[in-house]
Simulated scan of single mutants.
Amino acid sequence: MGNMLVEALSTLTRTKCWVRKDILLLEFTVSNACIISGLGKQKDQWVLVDTGLENSGDFIRHVVEDELGLGKKPEAIILTHGHFDHVGSVFELATHWDVPVYIHPLELPYVTGKKDYPLADTEVDDGWIAKLSKSFPHTSIDLGDRVHPLPEDGTIPHLPEWRFILVPGHTEGQIALFRERDGVLIASDAFTTVKQESLMSVLSQHETVSGPPKYFTTNWEEAKKSIQKIIDLNPQLAIVSHGQPIEGEELRNRLQELMNHFDEVAKPHHKKTVE
C-alpha cells in the first residue's frame, strides 16, 4: 500500500525547471532527478542524475524530447545511491537509450542483485509516509554489466567540471555531486528541504530543512558528518532529492542551523540506526 501511495503521489505534480542554464530539475512530488546538459565540444551532450520512481521513465523521456530534442540520449546515468525512489526507472531508461550507469562502489551490491537494504523503520516518526514506509521496496535490483563503479579519485565520467563527494549515513555509499566553479551541489538525500516523513509536508512542499529521510537512514553519526562535509564545501545552490532547491545565504544559514541542532531535529529519538 505504501509503495502504491508514493507512486500515486509522484504523478500528482510532475514539473521541470531550469535551475541553471545547464541544469534541468525534474520534480516528481516525492523525489527529484536532474539533467546536466551543455557537455562535450559541441555542447550537445548530457547526463541524467537519478531516475525517480518506476513510473517516471515516460515523463523523463518526454522532457528530454521537449528540452533537448528528438533522438537525444545521455552519455550516462549517474545514480546517487540505490534506493527505490532513485533507481525506479534506471533499468528501463538505460536499456531504452543503451547507455552505461555509474554508482559508488559501496552501492554496487544493491544494484547488482547481491545485497538488500534494511527494511524501513516505521517508528522513526509519526508522519504517514514514515508509518507506511515498511512496504516501500528495499530489495536490490540487478543492472548486470550495464552498471559500473565510479572512479576512486572522485571524478565523474562525462562530467569533467564535477566531482562526487561521499556523503554516507542515509546509505553507506551515497554521493553528492559538486561543481566548484559556481558552488552547485546535487545533494541527493544527505539533507532535505521538506519533512519527508510527513504526507502533508510532501504534498505542500513546505520548506523545512532537515536531515535525510529517517525511515531508511542507517547511520546517524555518519549522516551528521556528511552535513558538516557539505558545509565545508560552501555550496551556493543545493538541489535536493526531496523538496525545493535552496541557495545563497539562506542555504548556508539553514545548513549551519541543521548542524547545530542535528540530534534534536534530524535524528530519531528512539534509536540511532535502522536494524
Results as ranks from 00 to 15, higher is better:
Thr15Pro: 08
Lys16Phe: 05
Trp18Cys: 09
Lys21Pro: 08
Asp22Phe: 07
Asp22Val: 05
Leu25Pro: 00
Leu26Thr: 10
Asp44Lys: 10
Trp46Arg: 01
Val49Glu: 12
Gly52Tyr: 00
Leu53Tyr: 10
Leu53Cys: 14
Gly57Ser: 14
Gly57Ile: 02
Val63Cys: 07
Val63Gly: 02
Val64Gly: 02
Leu68Gln: 03
Lys72Arg: 14
Lys73Ser: 11
Ile77Met: 09
His86Ser: 03
Ser89Met: 03
Val90Asp: 00
Phe91Arg: 09
Leu108Asp: 01
Leu108Met: 15
Pro109Thr: 01
Tyr110Ile: 08
Asp116Ile: 04
Pro118Phe: 02
Asp121Asn: 13
Ser135Tyr: 10
Pro137His: 13
Thr139Ile: 14
Thr139Pro: 04
Leu143Gly: 05
Pro149Thr: 03
Ile156Asn: 03
Phe164Lys: 09
Ile165Tyr: 07
Val167Glu: 04
Ile175Asp: 00
Arg179Glu: 09
Glu180Cys: 02
Asp182Pro: 02
Ile186Cys: 01
Ala187Ile: 07
Phe191Tyr: 13
Thr193Gly: 11
Met200Gln: 11
His206Ser: 12
Ser210Glu: 13
Gly211Lys: 05
Lys214Thr: 10
Tyr215Leu: 03
Thr218Gln: 13
Trp220Gln: 01
Ala223Phe: 03
Ile227Leu: 10
Ile239His: 10
Ser241Phe: 09
His242Asn: 04
Ile246Leu: 12
Ile246Phe: 06
Glu247Asn: 12
Arg252Met: 11
Arg252Leu: 08
Arg252Ile: 07
Gln256Trp: 04
Glu257Ala: 14
His261Tyr: 12
Glu264Gly: 10
Lys267Glu: 12
Lys267Gly: 07
Pro268Ser: 13
